[in-house]
Design a protein around this nucleic acid. Structure first.
Lengths: 202, 202
DNA sequence: GACGATACGGACCACGGGTCCGCTTTGCAA
DNA sequence: TTGCAAAGCGGACCCGTGGTCCGTATCGTC
């Protein structure tokens, strides 16, 4: 059978670390002031254990992220509309963005931590790559939209974790309002179709 | 005259540090691996001098940013169209965004460094605050646009330094193409008003 | 030239990520 | 049950970085 590696205490510790980290990132305001030693202490293990299990800080964040993202990913890959693949593109794009936004609202600490967690920009992380290529491919199915790659980047940029954090935390924008704003923006980006033009273009 | 404080060696060192930092951030790929000690060495001063002059790393970045941004800020505040205040809103919005984009393209290292340079999100930095409130106020003058605050955030998000860096560096998108893409996105966001609609909308 | 104020600069500190290695636990087998 | 090798543990330790401190050099003035 596959699960032959990993002793049971290792597995238990892994879970403990994930749980502890999850709690800490959720509880604490800034992800910056959750140190690896904190996580270790909260999980009741040594630092070595964390690094053995996850490689480095980014690895821990990634693992957490994957766990939390799992249900959404399934819904996107094989679920029913409006997230699933059977949805018509014009409806699926806003649904995808709304899902991303909600996810980041529900996991503010974690998402922020992952996005700013070093090793360069979030744009090299492969979870971003996945969202982007999916969104791009859906956008491509909408006729009259050029630059689906850039559009995908731009739409995703509107859901950046630190922006969401700022809106929710500083500007106290309520969840539903934020969702509506994003939906509105998406609609505007998708709406303009073929080469019309109000006439003031030279 | 105002400039009565600061001994001349202090002033000279300040300039040396700014120049050195500027060069380093431009030359080096990642802003992460420009350390304060590097800057000090390159400027031929001690670390203490830098911290005395700029407070902390973020302060140095901010100072550099201000210097570089000065001409643009003037053009925006009192220059001729399309950046200046006399420009009609529908033309000024894309011009502002284009200016931001070009600035970040021309100062990739610096902009990236400033945006990720800790102390929380870029959304607390007051230069962001300035761009946002300006953009928002211009957007508000365009009839039929709701949520100018969020729209301003979203449009600015499309010019985030790390995104620009990714597009220019990884995806090798040429400058003019990127400008065109941003202009197109902006146009789409601004275009959709209630009135028109090519007819394929339901 | 002398003297106080100002600024210099690099040794020094705090702290966080990441490593290492002697010790413990686990799981298997006799 | 006992023995034993491998897997895993954990915290002392290392190292690089931002930031501080204070004896010393410089400035500017009289």
């Amino acid at each position: 059978m596959p699960e032959r590696r990993s002793r049971k205490d290792a597995a238990r510790n892994r879970e403990a670390v994930l749980a502890a980290a999850d709690a800490l990132f959720a509880r604490r305001g800034s992800p910056e002031d959750v140190t690896m030693a904190d996580v270790a202490a909260a999980a009741g293990v040594g630092k070595g254990t964390i690094f053995r299990a996850f490689g480095d800080r980014a690895g821990l964040l990634r693992a957490l992220y994957e766990v939390r993202l799992e249900p959404i990913r399934e819904a996107v890959e094989a679920g029913p509309p409006p997230l699933g693949p059977a949805t018509p593109p014009r409806d699926r794009v806003p649904a995808l963005l709304d899902a991303v936004l909600c996810f980041k609202l529900d996991n503010r600490g974690l998402a922020t931590a992952l996005e700013e967690s070093g090793s360069g920009s979030p744009y090299q992380a492969d979870h971003y790559e996945r969202w982007h290529s999916l969104l791009q491919s859906v956008l491509e199915q909408i006729p009259g939209l050029a630059d689906s790659g850039f559009t995908a980047h731009a739409l995703l940029a509107a859901t950046r974790a630190d922006l969401v954090e700022h809106l929710a935390g500083e500007e106290r924008v309520p969840r539903e309002r934020m969702r509506a704003q994003l939906a509105d923006l998406t609609a505007r980006v998708l709406a303009s179709g073929p080469p019309q033009g109000p006439g003031h273009e030279g």
